[in-house]
């Protein structure tokens, strides 16, 4: 099996994540729209709260949103929380 290229892997990471989101209502449609609307994307990066409000997407109370954009030279990865499986995991922290 040929190794996956870096850019293919990044594209696929996005695709895997989006596959659960297309039917996610307002957020799915917003994320779809930013993919082909550079102006909307720019506003979403600069003022995510305003764009969410326009689209009727509500954040949980007390939460803020930060939007990062990958570029040809920068990849952002967001890690899910660490799960402590056992004492060894804890000890390794």
């Amino acid at each position: 099996m040929a190794a996956m290229s870096f850019f293919d892997a990044v594209h696929r990471l996005w695709a895997e994540t989006m596959s659960g989101f297309w039917r996610g209502g307002d957020l799915g449609s917003l994320l779809g729209a930013v993919g082909h609307d550079p102006q909307l994307k720019q506003r979403f990066v600069q003022d995510p709260g305003a764009v969410l409000a326009e689209r009727g997407v509500r954040l949980p109370e007390g939460m803020t949103l930060k939007v990062l954009e990958n570029t040809a030279t920068t990849l952002h990865l967001v890690l899910p929380p660490l799960v402590a499986l056992d004492e060894n995991t804890e000890a390794a922290r």
Binding site: G62, T64, N70
Partner: peptide, 13 residues
Amino acid sequence: HEPNDDALLIVLP
């Protein structure tokens, strides 16, 4: 990036 309880992070392609 590591998650933070109060902030959502969305990464766009």
